[in-house]
Computed example of a mutant assay.
Amino acid sequence: MNLTSAAPISPEFDVTVRSTNPNRKIGIYYLKESSVKVYCDGEMLGYGVLPDFYQPRKNVTVVRTTAAVSAVLLGGAVKTELSNAQSRGRVPLVLTVEAPVEFKTRAITAKAKCDVVLDKLSDKAQILPKHCHTALDFLGR
Results as ranks from 00 to 15, higher is better:
M44G: 08
N59C: 15
K58A: 11
D52Y: 10
A68M: 12
T65L: 06
Q55K: 04
L50T: 02
T61V: 13
D52A: 14
T66K: 12
V49Y: 12
D52T: 15
L50G: 00
V49D: 11
E43I: 08
N59V: 13
Q55D: 06
V72C: 04
P51K: 08
Q55H: 04
T61D: 09
P51W: 04
S70C: 11
T65D: 08
P51C: 07
T66D: 09
V49I: 15
A67V: 03
L45D: 01
T66N: 11
A71H: 11
P51R: 06
A71E: 15
T66Q: 11
V63H: 04
M44E: 13
L45H: 04
N59L: 12
V69A: 02
A71T: 13
R57N: 10
V49S: 15
Q55N: 07
V60Y: 07
V72P: 01
Y54M: 08
S70Q: 14
A67F: 01
V72M: 05
A71K: 13
A67S: 04
F53W: 05
R64A: 15
K58Q: 12
V72W: 02
G46P: 01
V63F: 06
A67T: 03
T65C: 09
K58R: 12
V69W: 00
R57P: 06
G46W: 00
P56N: 02
Y47C: 12
T65K: 05
T61W: 03
R57F: 08
A68E: 10
G48M: 03
T61A: 12
Y47T: 15
V49A: 15
P51D: 07
T61N: 09
V72Y: 00
V63N: 05
V69R: 02
V60L: 10
S70K: 12
Y54T: 09
Y54N: 09
A71I: 08
M44T: 12
E43Y: 07
T65H: 07
V69K: 01
T66V: 14
P56H: 00
Y54E: 11
V60N: 08
R64V: 13
T65V: 09
A68I: 05
P56F: 02
P51N: 05
G48S: 06
V49H: 11
T61M: 09
K58W: 02
T65M: 07
P51Q: 06
G48L: 04
N59S: 15
A68R: 09
T65N: 07
Y54P: 04
V63E: 05
V69Q: 00
L45W: 03
F53G: 03
A71C: 13
G46N: 03
G46A: 06
F53H: 04
D52K: 14
P51S: 06
P56W: 01
T61I: 10
L50W: 00
S70I: 11
L45P: 02
V72I: 13
E43H: 10
K58C: 10
V72K: 00
T66H: 09
P56Y: 01
F53T: 06
L50R: 00
G48H: 02
P51H: 05
G46M: 04
M44Q: 12
Y54C: 05
R64K: 15
A68G: 12
R64D: 14
L50E: 02
V60I: 15
A68K: 11
G46F: 01
D52R: 12
L50Y: 01
V49L: 14
N59A: 15
L50N: 00
A67G: 04
R64C: 14
V63L: 07
A71V: 07
T65P: 02
K58N: 09
P51V: 08
Y54F: 13
V49K: 14
G48P: 02
V63T: 10
G48F: 02
